[in-house]
Amino acid sequence: MLRFLFWRLLGAAVLILAVSVLAFALVRFLPGGPAQAALGLRASPAEVERLNAALGLDRPVAVQYAEWLGRALRLDFGTSLSGGARAGTPVADLIARGLAVTVPLALLGTAIAVAVGLPLGLAAAARAGRGTDRAVSAAAVVALSLPPFYLGYLLILVFAVRLGWLPSVGYVSPAADPAGFLRIILLPALTIGIINAAPVARTARAAAVEVAAGEPVRLARLAGAPPGVVWFKHVLRGAMVPVVTVVGLQVGFLMGGVIVVENMFALPGLGRQMLIAAEQRDYPTLQAVIVVFAAAFVLVNLLVDLLYAAIDPRIRPEGG
């Protein structure tokens, strides 16, 4: 088991490294160039050259990357090139601040997605072909088609503007006021959660239908097992594997949603940091954020694989 873990971690590390190379190349080779972009179109060639030299951009690419990597391993991602209040801030700080908001938001969103999607999917499977099933399937299609900014817009209209239950803007840090923080991220988390509940519900339904039609369930019914036991013991457990898988696969989709809602609800998470960096052509931050997002994706999938092995004994490596 430990060997399995070791190899998977190694693979994850290699992947993250490859992404960092990609991020590095991206920023260097796209038209605009980092220094040019940071200074704006009106900068003179001389100014660009000076910034290039100052940032060390005139040296061979491989050397630049090696240096960046070396510093990155010590969690030093350089300093932000943004203007205004952020100028000169270590990128690592920006990222840390961003994570403090994004991680709780993403977790809450995922929790809502599973808490809503799993029961709905199972209910649809239990009444397959009838009213509940069709209603759930239709709702799922609509939910999947909702852009996060639109759903957020609608939720703000209803809950913040008309009903006044929840705030639409304003930020308090979780350390200072945990309850207030929760209120702040509830609407954005709901937005993400509702949209991501759709693939969960669909997968749960499909898996449940398949297990319910399978031999173990048929045998259980022939032996006179009560339906509750059949559903929990066989169908639910059987549906868990594909549901866990789809949650892992959807993380990329989820992150897109997180970025959008953070910006629309003005939450200072990683997504907001990234957008500001994009507007300001702040390439060190952009680079670092790509790597962080990719690392998160890879690690979540690794976790999913481990969870997989915990549920399905056939997946476990020998002796596990």
């Binding site: 031999e215 173990p216 048929r218 022939l222 032996a223 006179g224 059987g238 399905d312 004994p313 056939r314």
Partner: peptide, 22 residues
Amino acid sequence: RALLAEGTGFVPQDPLAALDPL
């Protein structure tokens, strides 16, 4: 269900498919 549970037993054709792998 009670009748089947107490009074009958069933042996299926494909033992691999009939046992829940989980």
